[in-house]
Design a protein around this nucleic acid. Structure first.
Lengths: 216, 216
DNA sequence: CTGTGCTAGTGTTCCTGTTCACATGGCTCC
DNA sequence: GGAGCCATGTGAACAGGAACACTAGCACAG
């Protein structure tokens, strides 16, 4: 009756998932360096973290390690990539092709891990209709039909704050279940849609807060 | 004997500071809309948050509210801006003027809140020596002398992962106490230096993790 | 084959941040 | 001037994530 009998999910902490992502990157590096095995202790100290933390994070998903040895780098890497969904290709829609949008598009790290920006949306008549590196730039109203045709799964919102909610609404309406938002606004989305915010102002203001404490 | 006798700091949670930043932005909007007072309840529901949370966050820093009324929008806004250090201008150094660097430079939101990118560093001979919008682009070796002369306080790292640690080391050596890192690496800095990371891969991979759970 | 050493996995404790619930205290209206 | 209202401020309960410390199990040496 349970949808996934072989594999129970005991509420994974958000922080654990973020760390998995970090571990994965580290393992990629280690594999490249020809390292075969790594202990939770070694892994931990690279991020000034607790080794129990590392073990617990990994143990949420299975028993990947060997006692007395540690973890096999390439094996663990593959497991984590599978868990994070990096073993497949995700179709990403980028909305907004201004400064930030084009920077994101040109960022090399994405395609690498299986995130493919397969279409761009922007209503600017200067941009809409053109193509960059083989990727079409379309007006926003094309979103719904394209989403189905291209099997879009992730939307990146890189438009000004004022337009962000409208864009998000369209993404949701088009059936997209994961949104990465760069606009400085708190978007409202249904709770079956996963929303991840990147807010530069918050990061900068956190810094200036701490500076202000010292520089009183 | 205590360095700050008039003002005790009872360990402010990191999350509180991030929320202050969000509140501030909201208050700016409210003020613009001509709203005079706002209650913790109203403020909270804009971010689907608990009202006690809002009150506690604010209470860390003083008694800004009026019982039976709420908070005076412009008064609270001014207080929060002071707490976050937004009542002054910070001199920011941007290191790396590639895709992301130039996008950040052109992003309007920064100057707005008192963050002035007053110098850019990039070793690319195509770029170094030039000027954009009156801001000079210099080779990285100029960092130390410029930091003093320009009173640089914040460094933004927008270089590839491989170069990031070296850049961070130079920023630290130049006496900069706050770093915003966009490179996908965990930088090591002395603990009196405030480090804030923005890691796009982590955000995207968090999304793909959740998608992968559903799309099994 | 047996013993030792090493490190993964895990139950428990600790601690930080969030939520609840109440008492406090200024404003307003009569 | 006093009584009632209403939202703040805050101590106490709660929850969840992180650290500790112990147990389990595999590998390798002798």
């Amino acid at each position: 009756m349970t949808p996934r009998p072989s594999f129970k999910i005991p509420k994974i902490p958000e922080m654990t998932i973020r760390r998995l992502s970090v571990y994965t990157r580290c393992l990629l590096q280690l594999e490249e360096d020809g390292v075969k095995t790594v202990s939770s202790e070694e892994l931990a100290e690279r991020f000034s973290l607790n080794s129990a933390q590392v073990r617990k994070d990994l143990a949420y998903f299975g028993e990947f390690g060997v006692r007395g040895i540690g973890y096999y780098v390439s094996g663990l890497k593959a497991e984590l990539q599978k868990i994070l969904g990096l073993d497949r290709e995700w179709q990403v829609a980028l909305v907004g092709f201004g400064n930030l949008g084009s920077a994101l598009f040109n960022y090399k790290g994405f395609a690498h891990q299986g995130f493919r920006i397969s279409v761009i949306f922007d209503d600017d008549p200067q941009k809409a209709g053109r193509t960059v590196d083989g990727v079409p730039i379309l007006p926003l109203r094309e979103l719904a039909p394209e989403a189905k045709g291209r099997n879009l799964q992730i939307g990146i919102v890189a438009v000004p704050a004022e337009a962000a909610q409208a864009v998000a609404d369209r993404l949701v309406a088009a059936g997209i279940k994961a949104i990465l938002n760069f606009a400085p606004t708190r978007l409202k989305v249904p709770k079956d849609v996963r929303l991840q915010n990147v807010d530069l102002s918050i990061e900068l203001e956190t810094l200036s807060f701490h500076l202000a404490q010292v520089t009183r």
